[in-house]
Design a protein around this nucleic acid. Structure first.
Length: 313
DNA sequence: AAGTCGGGGAC
DNA sequence: GTCCCAGACTT
């Protein structure tokens, strides 16, 4: 039976009871992640959130420790050589995130005196910080109320509240409203709900093989009650290609340049990718992105084959 | 609203 | 091989 005031799509489940049980489960089962430690800093939390954008926790954890040990504050990262930043990013993927994180550090220094703001609009204005990351930093770094809606929370609510296997491919206004309706009113409870619902999605209510037998709210889950029906949006999901894509080519180039001790001649770059035209296109794009610097050989008519490539300084 | 952007581990 | 991962940004 819906509770009074259930006007924003919480569904038939009783939200506060579910929230309480998810939070209690979190208190007993939360992972001991370094960006949750008592000595964490707001900047450290932001770094973790950017690294976790599309990269799994197990790969982020060691990188985060090394990163914060080397550049503990926004001012430290702002002053670092960009090439060092890209090398430290290593194989976390999507290296443009590393560029944006350094731009973010520089913006924090210039706009906010080196102190990360807790205002949502100020956070959103920072490079690399979108709706999810701004909300997450507000909740996890500052303990403030925000609507933290990542892939885990989306999936948990899709199942518990809507009875669907997975959320729609694209976030809708209605889904955001539903998530907002689930967030408790006060700061501390809202922050705890955000962390707990994300953790439940990461550890129990997983995309592939959910462990409903270990779920603290299995008895109130609409999806489980319906017999775990298949994903209704499956026909709209398209597998991301990989082999032979520009992304793979870019990754090969970046891996080569990260390891290089000196500018790499064009012929050596060409050795890592067989498609000449595709490689040329990707190199141009990497230069435009600011991930790679091309230096033409001295002379009147620059010869593409005589150019060298390196990471930015 | 749809495309683009890495990389690796689980299945 | 396919799918998924604490998304953001561009067009």
């Amino acid at each position: 039976m819906p509770v009074a005031g259930d006007v924003a799509g919480r569904g038939d489940v009783e939200a506060s009871g579910v929230r309480d049980d998810v939070v209690a489960w979190f208190d007993a089962h939360a992972r001991d992640l370094p960006w949750r430690a008592a000595d964490r800093t707001p900047w450290g939390v932001l770094v973790s959130e950017v690294m976790l954008q599309q990269t799994p926790v197990v790969r982020v954890e060691p990188a985060w420790r090394a990163w914060l040990d080397r550049w503990p504050t926004p001012a430290d990262l702002a002053a670092a050589p960009t090439g060092d930043v890209l090398r430290a990013w290593d194989r976390l993927g999507y290296p443009r995130r590393a560029l944006r994180l350094q731009e973010c550090a520089r913006a924090v220094v210039e706009r906010h005196g080196g102190v990360l703001p807790d205002d949502e609009d100020a956070l959103l204005a920072l490079p690399g910080v979108g709706p999810y990351t701004a909300a997450a930093v507000r909740a996890f770094a500052f303990g403030r109320r925000s609507v933290v809606l990542d892939t885990n929370v989306r999936r948990v609510l899709a199942r518990v509240a809507a009875g669907e296997a997975l959320p729609a491919p694209a976030l809708t206004v209605a889904e955001t409203a539903r998530a907002a309706a689930w967030v408790p009113d006060d700061d501390a409870s809202a922050a705890r709900w955000a962390a707990a619902s994300m953790e439940l999605g990461a550890l129990v209510c997983t995309a592939r093989s959910p462990r409903c037998d270990a779920c603290p709210v299995a008895d109130r889950c609409r999806w489980l009650a319906a017999g775990r029906p298949a994903d209704a949006h499956a026909h709209r999901r398209r597998a991301q290609a990989w082999a032979g894509t520009d992304r793979q080519a870019r990754g090969r180039v970046m891996a080569l340049l990260r390891e290089a001790l000196a500018p790499v001649p064009h012929a050596a770059v060409a050795a890592v990718w067989p498609d000449v035209a595709q490689l040329a296109r990707c190199l141009d794009a990497l230069v435009v992105d600011g991930l790679v610097v091309r230096e033409d050989a001295a002379g009147d008519a620059p010869d593409p084959d005589a150019a060298t490539y390196r990471l930015p300084h």
